[in-house]
Simulated assay, not measured.
Amino acid sequence: MLKLEKVDAYYGYIHALKNVSLEIKEGNIVTLLGANGAGKTSILKVISGLLKPQQGNVSFNGKDLTGQSPDKVVKQGIIQSPEGRQVFPELTVKENLQIGAYTQKNRSEANQSMEKVFHYFPRLKEREKQDAGTLSGGEQQMLAIGRALMAKPKLLLLDEPSLGLAPLIVKDIFSIIKEINGQGTTVFLVEQNANQALSISHYAYILETGKVIHHGPAAEIKNDSKIKQAYLGGH
């Protein structure tokens, strides 16, 4: 579905991504793991068209996306829920969701998408007239994911969805991500919560200082004692 092939990307003189190749197969949840500063968000920026690679290719369903503008990437069905939620605090929950549907021309389809979001996140339905800035951190994360779903993504990019959330809320968020995938949406998950991410993923990549240093089926990576010790906080 999505392929990065030998991608190099820079911020000025800083070499952020070094010969990165990865593949996301349709219907899967693929996780990208790595410490802060490893280059995880840079990969999302390359996919979304926010960072242009110096070398290498990005393709989606056989179409070359390398260097395309973010609006053209969105029109292909690649939608990102950003790190830090980034909801519009002075708009209501419903208004935030409606903004997510701006690519949809058909109002009835947008209404169906909203019903689907309220199915995944009943709490948003309860708070649909409330300003987004008054929501808790967990509710804002639900809203950020819901807003991305309003665009009917073929590929959903999630950047650190568990960041700063209480453990019980994290469990809920991962359960919903699994349900969204079960309904047919392919998910690319960038996470520091390695154990939770691997428990719902099909495949995983580990990034270190801009390089993919390991990849394989998520269950194998989760159970590999050397990887556990080095990257997953195991002993």
Rank of each mutant, 00 (worst) to 15 (best):
K45R: 15
N181T: 00
Y13Q: 15
I206M: 05
H215R: 04
G184Y: 03
T31I: 06
F118N: 09
N61F: 12
Q80Y: 04
P122E: 10
L4C: 03
T185G: 08
D159H: 11
L51E: 06
S108V: 12
Y13L: 15
T209D: 10
L124F: 12
L157T: 07
G184L: 02
H119L: 10
Q68H: 11
G233D: 09
S59F: 02
S113W: 01
K6R: 11
A204I: 00
I47N: 00
Q141C: 07
S81E: 08
Q68I: 05
V58A: 04
V58N: 08
N181V: 01
Q80D: 02
P161S: 11
A204H: 01
I78L: 01
G210E: 07
E179W: 00
I24N: 12
Q112I: 12
A204N: 00
N193A: 06
V87H: 01
N61V: 01
R123W: 02
G138S: 13
E191L: 07
N96L: 05
D71P: 01
I173R: 07
A197R: 03
S108N: 14
K3V: 02
P122L: 08
K129D: 15
H119C: 04
L44E: 11
Y205C: 03
P161T: 13
Q130K: 11
G34Y: 09
R127F: 09
Q229L: 11
P167Q: 07
E115P: 10
A38H: 13
I47Q: 00
P217C: 03
S42K: 02
G216W: 13
A38I: 09
G56S: 04
Q229M: 13
Q130V: 15
P70S: 06
I176Q: 05
I177L: 03
A218M: 01
Q183C: 02
S42W: 06
I29V: 15
V117Y: 09
K72M: 05
K45W: 01
L158R: 07
A197Q: 04
K154D: 07
G34M: 08
V20D: 09
D131P: 08
G39S: 10
N19C: 12
P89D: 09
L155T: 00
L158W: 05
I169M: 06
Q140R: 05
G56W: 06
A194N: 00
D172H: 14
T31Y: 07
I176F: 00
Q86C: 06
S21Q: 10
G49I: 04
R107L: 14
E23V: 07
S136M: 02
Y203E: 06
F174N: 05
N223R: 04
